[in-house]
Design a protein around this nucleic acid. Structure first.
Length: 423
RNA sequence: GGAGAGAUGGCAGAGCGGUUGAUUGCACCAGUCUUGAAAACUGGCUUGGGUAAUACCAACGGGGGUUCGAAUCCCUCUCUCUCCGCCA
């Protein structure tokens, strides 16, 4: 959620920034400012009304103490009319506040200066391209065939137990999964991130805090009887640790990492996108999250990018990094880097990480602030990134490392898997 | 799931329906003293709205009600604790 003061004071800048998303928000912004004006007016009216009522109440109290009953009763009549009008104003105020909130919910974050305008993924900017694509033989296979051939993942069994998009990992497949999780967590810990094991379900407030609610509830699994949501990413519970919090400046930055399964309904997906491990309803991910000082957040974003890079390099996977254009960026992000690995058998790029700076957009909803050394309180910046999401890493590992003798495990991972090759 | 008790500022803990946004202690910050520190003393120390700055308004778990006036009374929801039941 954008900050009202920012919208009011830097309207042109905000609009120019939002234009990079290839949409015009001037109508919404004007409406927001108009609603805020209304809000202020109503609030003022209510305040003066209440001020008078408070004054009268005090006088009445004094009169009672002095035993001047009749005079007090006369004043009581006046408070009755005040009360009536206050009620009306209060209703308007609540109504306007509600409308203002709704309007604010519909405006996405303002892209950072480095972000280019654009409407589709083609306009994303490639900033890094690392590694060589492997030369695979003509008989190369996609990961879903390899997974079946070596008995690593049973998609059919998942369908039987739960449904499509819930694979069952078996034997070395399961072991590989656990190896990757431990590898990612250890790397994060070595980079100074504190490990968290959060709840896998969150309440409504947390959903609002990180922006999944109100408009993306269709993407989350909802447990109706208790009104809880299965987390679509560890970002939700981990970032919400700092909801309604005022930190001290010297506590920043806060670095956290968490492994969790992630649950996504992925309503509307179809075709080759959902084949095999490409898109799942349940998948594993290690997330890194930072709560940062506003002056430091872009520097920190770069360190997070470096961290993800190092993971992919240790896994010997060729990758590229895209700086997303305005139109392809998520609603809450100010700048996002997507990491993609090349799947040699599918001959397509697979997104394995998305690392973003949300600036104050999430913090504003979370009410996560810090008190500076100057004594002033202001919003923090929040950042997060996948480091990494497992399924597509597994897909790329299987496909890119397939040999006639089996699937080769990258060196860095062998100490975690306990085997060098899957046969 | 059943019965009872409770929820107040960073923490602890007062609070009679009427200068209580809230006594006090601890913690914290600044100053005095000191070569420095500790101790002692003095002052500061919740958040949000609003303003050029004051005024002013709101908030004592959330929501609603009674009253001229509610942290204080009533209803309701949530959560915590104790006991019982069930159970990894």
């Amino acid at each position: 959620m954008l900050q009202l003061t920012n919208i009011r004071e830097n309207k042109d800048k905000v609009l120019a920034g939002l234009a990079k998303r290839n949409k015009d928000f001037s109508v919404q912004i004007d409406e927001i400012i108009a609603l805020d004006d209304l809000r202020k007016k109503a609030q003022q009216e209510l305040d003066t009304n209440l001020a008078e009522a408070n004054k009268l109440a005090k006088e009445i109290g004094d009169l009672f103490k002095q035993g001047k009953r009749e005079e007090a009763d006369r004043l009581k009549v006046r408070t009755a009319t005040l009360k009536e009008s206050a009620k009306g104003v209060e209703i308007t105020l609540n109504d306007v506040e509600q409308q203002l909130k709704q309007a604010l919910y519909l405006v996405p974050n303002v892209p950072y200066e480095l972000v280019v305008q654009g409407k589709s993924p083609e306009e994303n900017v490639e900033v890094v391209n690392w590694g060589e694509n492997p030369n695979l033989s003509e008989s190369k296979k996609p990961h879903w065939e390899l997974a079946e051939q070596y008995g690593l993942i049973d998609f059919e069994l998942g369908v039987k137990i739960t449904g499509a998009g819930f694979p069952v990992y078996c034997g070395k497949g399961a072991r590989l999964q656990r190896a990757l999780i431990n590898f990612f967590l250890d790397e994060a810990q070595n980079a100074g991130y504190k490990e968290i094991i959060p709840p896998l379900m969150v309440n409504e407030e947390s959903g609002f805090g990180t922006g999944q609610l109100p408009d993306k509830e269709g993407q989350m699994y909802h447990v109706g009887i208790d009104n809880l949501f299965l987390i679509p990413t560890a970002e939700v519970p981990v970032t919400n640790i700092y909801r309604d919090t005022i930190l001290k400046e010297d506590e920043l930055p806060i670095k956290m990492t968490a492994y969790t399964p992630c649950f996504r309904r992925e309503a509307g997906s179809y075709g080759k996108d959902v084949r095999g491990l490409n898109r799942l309803h349940q998948f594993d991910k290690v997330e890194i999250v930072q709560i940062a000082h506003p002056n430091m957040s872009y520097e920190i974003l770069e360190t997070m990018v470096e961290h993800v890079k190092s993971l992919l390099q240790k896994l010997e996977l060729p990758y590229r990094i895209l700086r997303l254009c305005g139109g392809d960026m998520g609603f809450t992000s100010a700048m996002t880097y997507d990491f993609e690995v090349f799947s040699a058998a599918q001959e397509r790029w697979l997104e394995v990480s998305s690392t973003s700076n949300f600036e104050t957009f999430q913090a504003n909803r979370l009410k996560c602030r810090f008190k500076g050394t100057d004594g002033k309180t202001q919003l923090v910046h929040t950042l997060n990134g996948s480091a990494l999401a497992l399924p597509r890493i597994v897909a790329a590992l299987l496909e890119n490392n397939q040999t006639k003798d089996g699937i080769r495990i990258p060196k860095a991972l062998v100490q975690y898997t306990g085997f060098e090759i899957v046969q």
